[in-house]
């Protein structure tokens, strides 16, 4: 009897291991192995031995550092903006219903179905030089505004729009754990919208916000299409920088070094993300 139970437990463990074996194998093959290769390839050179020269170069090269800072800055600002824009929409969708809410939801999720390249060209047509906004301003004899196209603001606007749906969905799932009754109860006792948000809703979706931010940061740090099409040529974000170093400059060593550094940053954010999720699991709803 006990032996049977034991073998049952062991069997459960075995099938559990088998279940995770495939994803783990894929992870090792497609992620960890290339990363390891990249790290080794940038510090060990057959014939000459170990050298961290390419890293020393990156962290002393003013241009590389400026690119890194720009990337961090765009990533941080875009993540925060995405949450700031998506939050009111999410609150509205969670606590209101009816035809207007359905329309808002459809509009907010729309960007999810538009490829980034189209977003970039639409952006250029609207906000770019001689775009729709410019044309209207000129027609009204108003002074032209400086176009955000090819400035850091360009990719930020594009990325905020592009990432809005996913951010909204993540926040909505967090807000799903805040019951309508608990909000009604606070209103009943006299809480205004601000108090309601800061004292009742925010404390309960903290971990969701961290998850949302970390998730956004992960995707943004290595974003390529929108920064490449809308961003300034110098400084540039890590994505376009890597691409240019690799193909235009035909410099795989430095491109790989940049990739490893980017990966290290993403891994750090990934850790925050995983921890926030674990914490969210533990916290009672």
């Amino acid at each position: 009897m006990i032996a049977a139970l034991r073998s049952g437990v062991a069997g459960g463990r075995l099938s559990g291991l088998l279940l995770v074996a495939l994803p783990v194998a894929l992870l090792i093959w497609l992620v960890l192995w290339p990363v390891l290769q990249a790290i080794v390839g940038t510090v060990y050179f057959p014939g000459t031995g170990f050298s961290t020269a390419s890293y020393a170069y990156f962290f002393t090269d003013a241009y590389s550092l400026r690119n890194l800072w720009l990337t961090l800055w765009v990533t941080a600002l875009t993540s925060v903006l995405r949450v700031a824009v998506a939050m009111p929409i999410a609150l509205y969708l969670r606590f209101r219903s009816g035809p207007v809410a359905a329309l808002v939801q459809a509009l907010a999720l729309f960007p999810m179905f538009v490829p980034s390249v189209l977003v970039a060209y639409a952006f250029i047509r609207v906000l770019g030089p001689n775009g729709i906004v410019d044309t209207i301003l000129v027609a009204l004899h108003l002074p032209k505004l400086a176009s955000p196209y090819l400035t850091p603001a360009g990719p930020i606007i594009g990325l905020v729009w592009d990432g809005l749906p996913l951010t909204l969905l993540l926040l909505l799932s967090g807000l799903g754990r805040v019951s309508i009754a608990s909000v009604d109860a606070a209103r009943d006792l006299g809480a205004g919208s601000f108090t309601l948000f800061t004292r009742i809703i925010l404390p309960r979706i903290q971990s969701s916000i961290i998850v949302t931010l970390a998730f956004n940061v992960l995707g943004l740090f290595s974003a390529f299409t929108l920064p490449f099409l809308l961003g300034p040529a110098s400084p540039e974000m890590m994505g376009p920088y890597m691409q240019r170093t690799f193909s235009d400059n035909a410099d795989p060593l430095n491109a790989t070094t940049q990739a490893v550094i980017t990966f290290a940053f993403c891994a750090a954010f990934g850790l925050i993300y995983v921890r926030a999720i674990a914490k969210g699991r533990k916290a009672p709803a």
């Binding site: 009754a181 608990s182 009604d184 109860a185 606070a186 009742i200």
Partner: peptide
């Protein structure tokens, strides 16, 4: 009048306490 301006207070069926 909104709820907070009425001399009423409501007890809900469940899940209305603030868990934090």
């Amino acid at each position: 009048l909104p709820p907070e301006r009425r001399p009423t207070a409501m007890v809900f069926q469940s899940h209305a306490l603030w868990s934090h």
